[in-house]
Design a binder for these strands. Structure first.
Length: 725
DNA sequence: CTGGGCATCT
DNA sequence: AGATGCC
């Protein structure tokens, strides 16, 4: 989650008066480049911007998934060795965000830990929140998973014209540096209305999704964000323009300014600038020479609380990525395995998205004792269309199979696998996401919001004026005041589901149910393979000859015989023993909570297996029947030499016209270095012990794709990000 | 013993 | 492709 600090230090210094005037949007005429601060803002009416920040978001989601955690003294969300967040009970005992597990347990030994490396549930809930907000007004911009900006200017203006009596009106929630009750709403009618809207939206989020959070109400994003945390859990604060300098002055250092990150703060410090005032009084031209015009001006503006950046509707993500970090990864085999694992879940997510990625990127982080911090390297390449198409079309395992070699090719562009290497992170990413199909206008009421939504939010070189105009249009046509109850129809469907544990894969599972026909055919062959495999294992000397004829039809015997004997043996040998405990932390949590299935009560004896991601999510599922089916899916290791399974992620055997390594693009494959080819072969013959459980699903229905219905309608894939399936 | 995931800009 | 920033 977020930065470790966010509390505002109340530190009223007396610098303010001199900047009150300059806070007006009037831009210094001397600005060299195209200024971000454009005069048009002065002409447009005062904006009302909300910032929502959910309380300890991951912890809340886990508490919803497992209410037992609420009563439990503490809960922390653990990712690797870090507590990324924890509930407020834990915070009261001194825990902070991003604290190491060691420290955390030292402070409170009874700490209950929940693994949070799989973000699926958080992501889903996150989009429900955004969707809910959008149902009131489309101008919602996401910031991470737990924050949203919202431009409610239009909504406020409408209410303003329809609110007869502004005098019987007060602020809701806190007013920064004021006693709320003492502030006359009539002096700041827009802000007051904004505070009411914020309160209603927070209430809606709580009622429909069960989440609490804070809100800030101000005239720009910077201020709204800064003020939202003034009173912390589950409260809201309005910042009046007259107090704008107070809050910016309360920041203890430049680093606290959103937009001034670690590196920038360091460079500023090198210039002798540490406090807000330092930067305010620093000559612009000197700043320009260090950072360039635009950056310099932007920072200067931020520090006087000027922020004209528009609330830009976020829309569907422009990239999907999946990553895992670990202490050490040093073999090509492990890289291959991990890459395949990451790709499996990424392809699944991509498939749900519905769009087709045109670009693939592989990112790694190498270990280096000195530069232990982020130095990531990446390589990307286009995804051949015939591969990319398989993702939205639903041939997900095919897609994975063909993407793995692609990924390995990129890997070898960065890493010489002949020399020793030491990776600590692998990331796979789809980008350049293309909406397929002609399809469909918004038939649903919401979809119309999104019809323009996925359009690229180009770099906003244009002044925010045009953006403002654009948003006004959107607001005019779509902004609905909740008091007109329009939102009910829209938000209904989000309301229930979330409190009861919702199987993350139920939707997918339904799809699988109709999709494994091929695989079940294959399963028969699989049986034969097993026997072949066992035979080979018991007597590995006679491999080639004895076994060749038992190879599945999709493996060209001739090719097989050309392989070195050791490879043949490997291909028929039982699955690798997965010997890398390094990647996951076996839990050290000593949970004291009874009857909480997905809490780790004791370290699992085996290193938690490669599959994190959705699979882990499935295992974690609370739904008993789902769990039950999960248990039996462990197969004997020797199950199969070639990856085939009824309902697993991979089915290598598909159509009989496949030559050699099955669905893999021969061209791509042949380009690979020999050792990689060998690794691939080895990997492919390996049966993953963990199966994705499609939950209980009747495979009977070969429905056209019940997704086709849902999916045909989604030329704009944004929809699914907001639609609980 | 520093997550995992997204965006923007150059 | 990398750097930086946000959560």
């Amino acid at each position: 989650m977020g930065d470790s600090e966010e509390e505002l230090e109340e530190d009223d210094t007396e610098w303010r008066s001199s900047f009150l005037d300059s806070a007006a949007p009037a831009v210094p005429a001397a600005a060299p480049g195209p200024s971000l601060c454009k005069p048009s803002a002065a002409t447009s009416a005062q904006r009302v911007i909300l910032h929502f920040d959910l309380d300890c978001f991951y912890a809340q989601v886990e508490m919803i998934r497992n209410p037992a955690l609420r009563e439990v003294p503490l809960a922390g969300i653990q990712q690797k060795y870090i507590i990324v967040t924890c509930n407020y009970v834990a915070r009261d005992l001194g825990l902070t965000k991003l604290m190491s597990v060691i420290d955390a347990k030292e402070k409170c030994p009874q700490l209950v830990l929940v693994k949070g490396e799989d973000l699926t549930h958080y992501r889903e809930m996150s989009y429900k929140v955004t969707e809910l907000l959008m149902s009131y007004c489309p101008l919602v911009e996401r910031l991470g998973f737990d924050e949203n900006f919202m431009d409610v200017t239009e909504m406020v203006e409408r209410r303003l014209t329809q609110t007869p009596d502004l005098n019987n009106f007060s602020f809701t929630g806190h007013v920064y540096n004021h006693i709320s009750a003492n502030v006359k709403a009539s002096d700041h009618p827009r802000m007051a209305l904004g505070s009411h809207i914020a309160a209603e939206l927070r209430e809606a989020i709580h009622n429909k999704l069960g989440l609490t959070g804070c809100a800030g109400i101000a005239t720009n994003k910077l201020l709204a964000k800064l003020v939202s945390g003034a009173f912390k859990p589950n409260q809201q604060t309005t910042l009046l323009p007259e107090n704008l300098c107070d809050i910016i002055g309360s920041l203890s250092s430049l680093r606290k300014v959103p937009g001034i990150g670690h590196q920038t703060a360091k460079r500023l410090q090198a210039l002798g600038l540490v406090s807000i005032q330092d930067l305010q009084s620093f000559p612009l031209k000197d700043l320009v020479s260090e950072f360039g015009g635009p950056s310099a001006q932007r920072m200067k503006n931020l520090v006087i609380a000027v922020d004209d950046s528009p609330v830009t509707p976020t829309g569907a993500p422009q990239s999907l990525s999946d990553e895992d970090s670990f202490k050490k990864m040093a073999s090509t085999k492990d890289v291959l395995q991990k890459t395949q694992q990451l790709l499996s879940s990424l392809v699944e997510r991509m498939n749900k998205d519905g769009r087709q990625p045109l670009t693939f990127r592989l990112t790694i982080r190498r270990y280096s004792p000195t530069n232990k911090w982020f130095s990531r390297e990446s390589k990307q390449c286009p995804i051949p269309n015939h591969i990319g198409q398989k993702i939205p079309s639903g041939s997900r395992d095919d897609a994975v199979l063909q993407l793995v070699p692609l990924a390995m090719k990129l890997f070898h562009k960065m890493v010489d696998s002949n020399a020793p290497f030491h990776l600590t992170l692998i990331n796979v990413c789809f980008s350049n996401l293309q909406t397929r199909g002609a399809a469909v206008s918004g038939k649903g009421s919401i979809t119309s919001f999104f019809s323009h939504g996925t359009s690229p939010r180009k770099t906003q070189t244009s002044s925010s004026q045009s953006q403002q105009n654009g948003s006004s249009q959107a607001a005019d046509s779509h902004c609905m005041d909740h008091q007109f109850s329009m939102h009910n129809m829209v938000t209904q469907h989000t309301s229930q589901m979330t409190v009861t544990t919702e199987s993350p894969s139920s939707y997918e599972a339904a799809l699988h149910g109709s999709r494994w026909k091929q695989s079940s055919v294959v399963a028969v062959k699989d049986t034969r393979l097993q026997t072949a495999c066992r035979a080979a294992r018991s007597d590995s000397d006679e491999t080639s000859n004895t076994v060749t004829h038992r190879l599945p039809p999709n493996v060209d015997p001739e090719v097989f015989e050309l392989l070195p004997e050791e490879i043949q043996v490997e291909l028929l040998s039982p699955a690798y023993v997965n010997s890398s405990p390094s990647t996951s932390t076996s839990s050290s949590a000593q949970a004291t909570v009874p009857d909480v299935p997905h809490i780790q009560k004791a370290p699992s004896p085996e290193p938690s297996q490669p599959f994190t991601e959705n699979i882990e999510g499935a295992v974690n599922e609370l739904d008993p029947p789902c769990r039950a089916t999960t248990v039996n899916n462990q197969r004997p290791l020797a199950t199969s030499a070639f990856p085939v399974r009824e309902e697993g992620r991979l089915s290598f055997v598909e159509s009989s016209d496949c030559k050699f390594p099955v669905n893999v693009d021969p061209e791509v494959f042949s380009e690979l270095p020999p050792d990689v080819q060998r690794e691939l072969m080895s990997e492919w013959k390996q049966q993953k012990p963990v199966l994705k459980v499609p939950s209980s699903r009747k495979p009977g229905r070969k429905t056209k794709d019940r997704k086709a219905a849902g999916k045909g309608g989604q030329a704009n894939s944004l929809f699914k990000y907001f639609k609980p399936t």
